[in-house]
Design a protein around this nucleic acid. Structure first.
Lengths: 230, 230
DNA sequence: CTCAATGTCAAACATATGTTTGAAACATGT
DNA sequence: ACATGTTTCAAACATATGTTTGACATTGAG
């Protein structure tokens, strides 16, 4: 059973009204890091509370359940990332409009993959990837709600932008390609192998620990994929 | 903890020497189906033995542990799939050689994705995807061994074939693109959402339950991705 | 200060899961 | 028919995990 499957059982014992309890914040921060690094289901509340230096019961005390904590973490994340991505995309589209040119496909792609590859957003990107993966592999009403609410509109905008970049390609094609792109990126960034297969296969020629190189290779791949003729 | 993390604890109570026990076979078959459909960790041995109409202890009796069963199932699968894929690829390369032309990129791609999209290999493809996913998300020495042994040589052959298709692209680039392609395909075919996001986003225009349409869209995407200029 | 609200803690609880056990049933060769 | 090796079965076991509990500590307003 995955985290999001478990519903609450009963209401919290008591309610923390308005205290900015240190424990609460530490739990959220630790959850962010651990969930991003190992996936939600692989982090037990004992491990979580241990790292956060907080009692085992704290998660249930403050959040009601592990599932509620995860939901909260993911919702906050979705809001932050979604906003930033839309800003990035809007900027690309605005620039193109000012030059009265079609937007640049590579720029749109970069706006899309930024959260996943920007070192400054490493944890957030990994966490987002976990959310998507979680939903792809074990969809629940909760993950469904989060995706629908925060990422469906985003997806529509990106599909629209892609269609602007390549007007010769019929729009429905971009629904396919968009979901393929999500698959490509999400699984790429959530590869947790300590020694990545790439270095083994390529005998060191390709190095996935080089973030810039990974980004460039991804952009080349995705631009080619998205602009392929039908 | 994932299946493959668990080692054996002690030797089996007794050994089934040479009987083709019905139970044993039924367990393997059921494991194949359930693992492919839900992922390994999501299938409890009680669920498994329940479906196989076999006692709970049977898995441990015949295979020693759930992990050993999974390993066996996956190794058998890896052998079957790997052989078929190499045959497919060799045929494509041979045909090209006979025409003394470069091999067709789309044909190579089709040889690669066949196990994942061919309806006749539906279960096997899903199972293979589960193995790759398992390794990407929670690599263990067992998954590592299986991948290395059965799929690294295959990967090298495909990279070689891709380089033949596009001689103007430097070979190291194909190591990147090959792993990206694996990501794309694996996550695409392991999407278990009953109502796929695609139909929601595209308002029904794109239908992932249409296997042929999915394959064509995938081929277009991958051919574009793999042949993109550097 | 008082005391009620809030937070902390260790221990216990409930459940799910992989595994083991020991007896009974079955099969098979002599 | 017996003995022996094999299979089946229900029950118990061990462990991991999320959760709850009740006692105790801390805090802050009146």
């Amino acid at each position: 059973m995955s985290v999001f499957d478990r519903g609450e059982r009963k209401v919290m014992t008591s309610v923390a009204v308005a205290s900015d309890a240190v424990a609460r914040q530490r739990i959220v921060e630790t959850a962010l890091e651990l969930f991003a690094a190992k996936g939600i289901d692989s982090v037990s509340v004992r491990e979580l509370t241990g790292h956060a230096k907080v009692n085992v019961g704290a998660v249930n005390y403050y959040f009601g359940s592990k599932a509620k904590l995860a939901e909260l973490v993911f919702e906050q994340l979705a809001i932050r990332i979604s906003k930033r991505r839309i800003d990035d995309l809007e900027r690309v589209l605005r620039d193109a409009a000012e030059r009265s040119a079609r937007p640049d496909l590579a720029s749109v792609v970069r706006a899309f993959i930024r959260p996943y590859v920007d070192p400054a957003m490493k944890t957030e990107g990994a966490l987002l990837a976990q959310l998507i993966l979680q939903h792809r592999l074990r969809p629940t009403s909760t993950t469904m709600r989060l995706i629908k609410k925060h990422f469906d509109p985003l997806a529509q905008r990106f599909v629209g932008a892609l269609a602007q970049c390549c007007p010769e390609i019929p729009r429905p094609e971009f629904y396919w390609r968009y979901t393929f792109m999500v698959s490509t990126v999400v699984l790429t960034v959530s590869d947790l192998s300590p020694r990545h297969r790439l270095v083994r296969l390529s005998a060191g020629t390709a190095d996935p620990s080089d973030a810039a190189a990974t980004e460039e290779a991804l952009v080349r791949y995705l631009v080619g994929a998205l602009s392929a003729p039908v």
